[in-house]
Amino acid sequence: MAEQTIVNKKADSFEKYLKDNNLNFFTRFDKGDENQTVLFRSNIQVEGQQLPVNVITDRTIYTIIRVFVGQHIIKENNRADFDSFMNQMNRSYKVFKYAATDDGDLFLDACMPSTQESFDPKVVRIVLDVVVDHLNHEYKKVMQLAWK
């Protein structure tokens, strides 16, 4: 019996949505892994900075918007302040969560569950707009913590 290949319909749907709406600021990158992960890479401008953003789709029920807020900005002397900030933000916002890597990178993730058939690229766009609006209001605070 031949193995059936399951495609990442969410990636194709998102790509079609981008083309249909003349949204040409994402670049598609197919990872070629077993989940058929596809990254749609771009940048968002916040306070004069270009923050990398990925829309990550695959064959699982999750689609993730990941914004890289800052690289190596959390250090020993500001970790407690960042932990407090992230906890406050994570309690205040349902659609996204802040997280930090062990080496001090800060990122923001929005996770949207859907099946391949129920995926709605418009929801991704709406959530991305909410994330950008949030960062436009909070990025100065993040940088103030980073420079402590």
Rank of each mutant, 00 (worst) to 15 (best):
2 A>F: 09
2 A>R: 09
3 E>Y: 11
4 Q>A: 12
5 T>M: 15
5 T>D: 10
7 V>F: 09
9 K>W: 10
10 K>M: 07
12 D>I: 11
12 D>Q: 14
15 E>G: 13
15 E>I: 02
19 K>V: 10
20 D>C: 05
20 D>R: 00
21 N>F: 00
21 N>R: 03
22 N>A: 15
22 N>W: 08
23 L>F: 05
25 F>T: 04
26 F>R: 06
36 Q>M: 05
41 R>L: 14
42 S>M: 05
43 N>K: 09
44 I>W: 02
44 I>P: 04
46 V>H: 07
47 E>T: 14
47 E>M: 12
47 E>H: 10
49 Q>A: 14
49 Q>R: 12
50 Q>A: 11
51 L>V: 03
52 P>R: 03
52 P>Q: 08
54 N>Y: 06
55 V>D: 08
55 V>I: 15
56 I>S: 01
57 T>D: 08
57 T>C: 04
58 D>I: 13
59 R>Y: 06
60 T>L: 12
61 I>Y: 11
61 I>A: 09
63 T>V: 07
64 I>S: 10
65 I>L: 12
65 I>N: 09
66 R>K: 13
68 F>Q: 11
69 V>E: 02
69 V>K: 01
70 G>H: 01
70 G>S: 02
72 H>R: 15
73 I>K: 08
73 I>E: 06
75 K>I: 07
75 K>Q: 13
75 K>G: 05
76 E>Y: 05
77 N>C: 08
78 N>H: 04
78 N>M: 03
80 A>Q: 14
80 A>R: 07
81 D>C: 06
81 D>V: 10
82 F>T: 05
83 D>H: 08
87 N>D: 12
90 N>F: 00
90 N>Y: 00
91 R>N: 06
92 S>T: 08
94 K>R: 13
97 K>A: 10
99 A>R: 11
100 A>F: 04
101 T>E: 02
102 D>R: 08
102 D>I: 09
105 D>L: 11
109 D>F: 09
109 D>P: 13
109 D>H: 11
110 A>L: 02
111 C>R: 07
112 M>R: 07
112 M>G: 06
112 M>W: 10
117 E>D: 15
120 D>F: 00
121 P>K: 03
126 I>N: 11
126 I>V: 10
127 V>D: 04
129 D>A: 13
130 V>L: 11
131 V>E: 02
133 D>E: 14
135 L>I: 01
135 L>K: 00
136 N>W: 06
137 H>Q: 15
137 H>C: 14
137 H>I: 11
139 Y>L: 15
142 V>S: 04
145 L>Q: 13
146 A>M: 01
147 W>C: 08
